[in-house]
Simulated scan of single mutants.
Amino acid sequence: NIEVYERDGVYQIIATEIAPLGVGVMHVQLEQTKKKLEKMGVFDVNIKKKIPLVPKKIAVVTSLTAAALQDIIHIAERRYPVCNIEVYPAQVQGTAAAQTICKALSSADKSGADTIILARGGGSSEDLMVFNDEAVALSVYACNTPVISAVGHETDTTLADYAADMRAPTPSAAAEIATPDKSDILNAVRLLRQKLDKAMELKLDKAVSQIESCDKLLKLYSPEKRLEQSEKAVCDLEKRLSQIMERRLEKLSVKLDGYVSSLNILSPFNILGRGYAIVQKDESVVDSVSMLNVGDEVDIKLSDGSVSANITFVK
C-alpha cells in the first residue's frame, strides 16, 4: 500500500508480503510443495512398487510429438519386441499440461499395463515446471501401476521423480529399465532348459531305479515265487518223510527179524525137528495121559507131516 504525506510530499510504501523475484519465487513455492508432499508420505521409499521384470504391456504418458516417445519405442522394440507399447498422449508444457498429464496417468493406470513411463525430453527449468505441479505428483503417487519417471536430462529432478516408484535419468534409460533384454531372456531360457533336462534325467533315473526295486520286490514276494518256495519246501518235506519212513521201516524190519528169531527159538516145530511130536485130540494139544481113553483117535504131528492113530491102551 502507498501512503502520501501531503504536507511534506512524502510517499510511504507499506509491504504486506515479501517474496523473491522470478525464479526465486518458483523455488520457494517448489520447496513448500515438496515439504507438504513429504509430510503426506508421497515420497516414502518404503511404499515404492517394484518394476516388473517381464512386462506384457507398457503405457507411455508423453507428447505424441516428443522425440522421447520414439526413443522409448525404438529401445523397447530392440530389447523386448513382444511387449505391447500403448501411448497416452499429454501436453508436457503449457498451462493445460498438468491437467492432461493427470488425466493420461489415470487412463494408463486403468489400462492393465504392467508399467507406466512418464516421459519428457530435456528442457529448461521453466519447461519442466509442470512436473513439479502438486496435482501431477499426487497423480503419480495415486497410480496402482508402477511408474517410472523420465523427465528431462540426468541432472534434472522434479517432484514427479520423487513420487514415482523409480526415476530414470533419461527416457531411453526408462525404456531399458522397463524392458528385459531378449538375449538375457534367451540365455536364461537355455539355462533353465539345461536345468530342466538334468532334473528330468535325474527324475527318470530315480523312477527307473524305483521300478527296478519294485520289480525285484514283486519277484521276491510274487505268488509264483511263493509257489516255487512252497513247492521246494514240499519236495524237501517229501524227501525227509521218505528218509524217515525208510529208517522207520529198517528199524521195524530189524525188530521183526528179532521177533521171528525169537518165535523160531520158541516154536514147538523146532522141537519136532529133534524127534519130538505133538499129539492132538479134537484139535486140542494132549499134554497128559489122563486126557486119553482106549479107543480115542488122535493126530500126531511130526516135523515133516502128521499121522492118525487109535489109542489101544493107557499106561
Rank of each mutant, 00 (worst) to 15 (best):
Val4Pro: 05
Ile14Gly: 02
Thr16Met: 13
Gly24His: 08
Val25Lys: 09
Val28Arg: 13
Gln29Ala: 15
Thr33Gln: 03
Leu37His: 05
Glu38Phe: 06
Glu38Asp: 13
Asp44Trp: 05
Asn46Glu: 12
Lys50Gln: 08
Pro52Asn: 05
Val54Ala: 08
Pro55Gln: 01
Lys57Pro: 00
Ala59Arg: 03
Val60Phe: 00
Ser63Leu: 01
Ser63Asp: 07
Ser63Thr: 12
Thr65Lys: 06
Ala67Trp: 01
His74Trp: 06
His74Thr: 14
Glu77Tyr: 08
Glu77His: 11
Pro81Asn: 15
Asn84Val: 07
Ile85Leu: 12
Glu86Ile: 14
Gln93Arg: 14
Gln93Ile: 00
Gly94Thr: 09
Gly94Met: 01
Ala96Ile: 03
Ser111Thr: 04
Gly112Lys: 10
Ala113Trp: 00
Ile116Cys: 01
Ile117Arg: 03
Ala119Glu: 06
Gly123Ile: 09
Asp127Arg: 13
Leu128Pro: 03
Met129Asp: 04
Asp133Ala: 07
Ala135Met: 11
Ala135Arg: 06
Val136His: 11
Ala137Ser: 08
Ser139Cys: 06
Glu154Tyr: 11
Thr158Lys: 07
Leu159His: 02
Leu159Arg: 09
Ala163Phe: 05
Ala164Ser: 13
Asp165Ile: 07
Ala168Val: 01
Pro171Cys: 04
Ala174Lys: 00
Ala174Ile: 02
Ala178Thr: 06
Ser183Arg: 07
Ser183Tyr: 05
Leu186Gln: 09
Ala188Lys: 15
Leu191Met: 05
Lys195Phe: 07
Leu196Tyr: 10
Leu196Phe: 07
Ala199Ile: 05
Leu202Val: 01
Lys203Glu: 15
Leu204Trp: 02
Leu204Asp: 00
Ser209His: 05
Ile211Asp: 09
Asp215Thr: 14
Lys219Asn: 14
Pro223Thr: 06
Glu224Arg: 14
Lys225Gln: 12
Leu227Trp: 11
Val234Tyr: 03
Leu241Gly: 02
Ser242Val: 10
Ser242Asp: 05
Ser242Leu: 13
Met245His: 14
Glu250Leu: 08
Gly258Thr: 02
Gly258His: 08
Val260Ala: 13
Leu266Tyr: 03
Ser267Gln: 03
Asn270Val: 14
Arg274Ser: 10
Ala277His: 05
Ala277Val: 04
Ile278Met: 10
Glu283Ile: 11
Ser288Gln: 14
Val289Thr: 15
Asn293Thr: 11
Asn293Ile: 02
Val294Ser: 12
Gly295Thr: 10
Asp296Pro: 00
Val298Gly: 03
Val298Arg: 04
Lys301Asn: 13
Asp304Thr: 11
Gly305Lys: 07
Val307Ser: 07
Val307Cys: 12
Phe313Gln: 10
Val314Lys: 09
Lys315Ile: 13
Lys315Glu: 04
